[in-house]
Design a protein around this nucleic acid. Structure first.
Lengths: 339, 339
DNA sequence: ATGAAAGCGCTAACAG
DNA sequence: CTGTTAGCGCTTTCAT
């Protein structure tokens, strides 16, 4: 059922139908005709073809969202904020790497082929776009700052790292281990480096090589940590910081199996503050990355961009430490987010 | 940059370019011309416009996925399986209700307006489609069987309920409570009813009215359970079964705050077996709903449907009980999934 | 206030 | 093998 069918029934022409369905009838089409048209639309159950509409108008109405891992709650939360804030007129096309193993150039290239109104890249690696520039706005999320001139929205990892370093040092930790992933995740590197810097200010440091997990998953961290623990113990590590809550969950599991007492023998910290971090045993101390807000702000930025407005090259959202039992009871005067 | 630009550069006509880029050049276009065309394509960085292509060919290439809640790991897992299995040619549009509160007719109507190659409805309510029938295949997931003639993929809740009832009764439970949500979720009702039936076989039963949470979330369950516990205790409830793991997490939290010992004073069971269920305290006994597999099978079914093949009206996937510490140590000979 | 004409970029059906 | 002709369904001038 096409616009012409409607036009025929309503005894007018297709362009008039177009005006009406697009709400552009203000003072341009006779109210009684408009009525007839709406009636015909309902009667025939007419819906405009988004495809044809997009082609004719040159207006794209779908935004591409590239997620490294749709099962990671962090990205789910970002997605939720995005979806909740995006105008109804904008559809969202999900793009995820085939293997579930984070995404590479190929994934991005695929995304670029999709002719989107805008493209959102969540937690990309370092080298983002190799080929010719895309013909739509690109927004980068959680990449540790703008890259290649694309506007980005980031978390204040720097500030959180300072806060976290203080917290750890206040508990007497001086010898720390870091758990990250094998991939070239800009965001994870930044977390590590910022933390290293602020630990150093207090005479603390990473005393073992970073542990690189195959993937950002509970299982990967569990097996990696199981293998690394002896070396950590030998090096006198008393706290381990994980680049992501999922890695921290795996770390907690590994310790549980190894019979290592947390936080008695070693403290564990994660980045993200997923909804499950206060449910795991022991409750995980984390850096809250306000994932949902990240999605909300992304949607706002997209709409601004599509209106042709300028947006700041880098937007930074606050990130704060949420202290829970995995780093021991909070010292007097310290905020405790475990409630 | 259009196909005509390429044609011009390669000194041929647009349709020939079309043949080449679509891999339909076998024996229909001169290899040397094809070379020139590919060169031109690369040189101009030409990409076919999916929009124009779809319009001209009448082939739709995006499938719509309606999720009640993108932050619920169950649906994330379904999505992951779906994305991983779907052909590269098929894009996926995410549709979620605005409020984050499950979806209604309006959400579905919006989905119908999207002209998709296929539509997937995950865990819908009872009345699914009111208006005129959609013009694309619709697949229903986790709805407790086919509805309105749409093919469905479901979990063997019936079998799992039997298994679960046996497990609970073997531990001496006779007086049980059920936690669900306010919404008309077909799937949750089925879980409840099947369990009730099999509990009755063993002389056990629900001894209090079902607890209805506002939403399928940890927080909603936590507050609902907090308010209901006294009545449960008065009624002698010794086990509570939650329609979803998230509800179970909230239940565990409520009990933790109330100082109720699990499973000492009361046992808790959830449906879903999310990845976090063996991390929470205490490890949650659940019914494994093989969410990812649900997504995989959905993708398979979509592709079959698009090939014009017939599919069974109802496909049922296995669901099994995973016993963990929230229902106490497993009795001798009972499988223990807590490892 | 409305219709006629043109065209978005591509593909299918034919003609050569 | 290749080019020409149409047309997908809609929107946008531009007449009237």
């Amino acid at each position: 059922v096409t616009a012409r069918d409607v036009a025929e029934l309503a005894q007018c022409s297709a362009p008039t139908v177009s005006l009406v369905v697009n709400g552009k009838s203000a003072g341009r089409v006779n109210p009684v005709l408009e009525r007839r048209i709406w009636d015909a639309i309902e009667q025939l159950n007419y819906r405009v073809s988004p495809t044809a509409s997009a082609l004719a108008s040159g207006l794209r109405s779908t935004i591409g969202f590239v997620s490294p891992d749709v099962t990671n709650p962090f990205f789910s939360l970002v997605l939720e904020g995005l979806l909740a804030t995006l105008s109804d007129r904008l559809a969202l096309h999900m793009i995820a790497p085939i293997a579930g193993n984070d995404y590479d150039q190929a994934t991005i290239r695929q995304a670029l082929a999709g002719d989107f109104a805008a493209l959102v890249l969540a937690s990309p690696g370092r080298r983002i776009l190799d080929g010719p520039p895309p013909d739509c706005p690109v927004i980068i999320l959680d990449a540790g700052g703008s890259q290649q001139g694309y506007p980005s929205i980031d978390l204040d990892v720097e500030g959180a790292a300072r806060e976290l370093a203080q917290h750890l040092v206040a508990f007497g930790h001086r010898r720390v281990a870091y758990v990250g992933v094998d991939r070239d995740k800009a965001s994870l590197h930044l977390r590590r480096d910022a933390l290293q810097f602020h630990l150093a200010e207090h005479g603390a440091q990473f005393v073992v090589p970073d542990l690189s997990c195959d993937s950002m998953s509970i299982g990967a961290a569990e097996s990696a940590v199981s293998g690394a623990y002896q070396a950590w113990a030998d090096a006198g590590v008393t706290a381990v910081v994980c680049g992501d809550d999922l890695l921290a969950y795996g770390t907690l599991r590994a310790f549980a199996h190894l019979g290592v007492d947390v936080p008695g023998e070693i403290s564990v910290v994660g980045f993200d503050n997923l909804p499950y971090s206060e449910l795991v045993r022991p409750n995980l101390t984390t850096v809250d990355l306000s994932a949902r807000e990240l999605g909300v702000r992304t949607a706002d930025m997209i709409q601004a961009l599509l209106r042709g407005e300028d947006v700041p090259e880098t937007t930074t959202l606050p990130a704060t430490v949420v202290v829970r039992e995995s780093t021991g009871p909070a010292p007097a005067g310290q905020e405790n987010g475990g409630g």
